[in-house]
C-alpha cells in the first residue's frame, strides 16, 4: 500500500521551523492529538484520539527517523497501536524543497495494517488519509502562519495525489536547518494519519 502527496506551506522557513519545534503547535495541528513526547533524539511518541464516523478510539504511536539528509529528506519509521483494535506500521520517505518563498513537502508512505484493523480491510485508507492530512495541514498552516495560507495550495483532497492503494501518510511541512525535530513532527503526523486511516477501513 502506497500513498503519496505534496503540500506547500506559505511561510518562511524560520516560521515553519519554530512551529515545528513547538509541541503546542503540533498538539494543535495533529487531529485529535492529546499528547506528544520526545523520548529520544530521534524518537517521538504521541497519543491520539481518533474520531470519525462511528469510530472513536485512542491510539498511541512511535516514530523513529533514519537516513537523515538535512534540508533534503528523511525516512520515517513508524508504528501505531490501538490495543485490541490492531496496529499499523510502515515507513515514509519525505523530501523538502523551497518553492516560491514557501516550503514544498512531498511524501511517499508505505504501510501495513494488522489485527482487527487488518481484518476489517483497507477500503477507505486513502480517503481517511486525505481527510486527516487535510485537517492537519489546515491547522498547521493556520497556527504557524495565520492568514498566510494560499488557498490554491490548501491540502484539500485534490492535493494529495491519489495513488495506488496505500495507507496513509501525512505530511508536514517545514524546512529548516537540519532539524531533527521538524522531522519528528512530520513523523508524528504521518503516524497519526496512517493509524487513523487503518481504522476506518471498514
Amino acid at each position: 500500500m502506497e500513498i503519496k502527496g505534496e503540500e506547500n506551506i506559505r511561510a518562511t522557513v524560520q516560521t515553519v521551523w519554530d512551529g515545528l519545534n513547538s509541541t503546542d503547535v503540533l498538539l494543535k495541528s495533529i487531529p485529535g492529538c492529546e499528547e506528544i513526547q520526545r523520548t529520544a533524539d530521534n524518537e517521538l511518541q504521541a497519543k491520539v484520539m481518533i474520531k470519525l464516523g462511528p469510530v472513536k478510539a485512542r491510539f498511541s504511536g512511535k516514530v523513529t527517523m533514519t537516513n537523515v539528509q538535512p534540508l533534503k529528506g528523511y525516512t520515517l519509521n513508524f508504528e501505531g497501536s490501538g490495543g485490541a483494535a490492531g496496529f499499523a506500521k510502515g515507513s515514509a520517505d519525505v523530501s523538502l524543497q523551497e518553492a516560491d518563498g514557501g516550503t514544498l513537502l512531498t511524501y511517499v508512505a508505505n504501510a501495513s495494517v494488522g489485527g482487527k484493523l487488518g481484518q476489517i480491510g483497507s477500503r477507505l485508507i486513502e480517503g481517511s488519509a486525505k481527510k486527516l492530512s487535510s485537517e492537519f495541514f489546515a491547522a498547521f498552516a493556520e497556527t504557524v502562519a495565520p492568514g498566510h495560507r494560499d488557498r490554491a495550495e490548501q491540502p484539500s483532497a485534490e492535493d494529495a495525489t491519489p495513488s495506488d492503494d496505500g495507507p496513509a501518510a501525512s505530511p508536514k511541512a517545514a524546512s529548516a536547518q537540519g532539524s531533527n525535530r521538524m522531522w519528528l513532527a512530520i513523523a508524528a503526523a504521518v503516524v497519526v494519519v496512517i493509524v487513523a486511516a487503518s481504522i476506518f477501513s471498514k
Binding site: M1, S122, I125, E158, P162, D165
Partner: peptide, 11 residues
Amino acid sequence: LNPLSDLTNTS
C-alpha cells in the same frame, strides 16, 4: 473524476 483507490482497485 480522479477516484480514490482501494486495496484491490487502482484509481
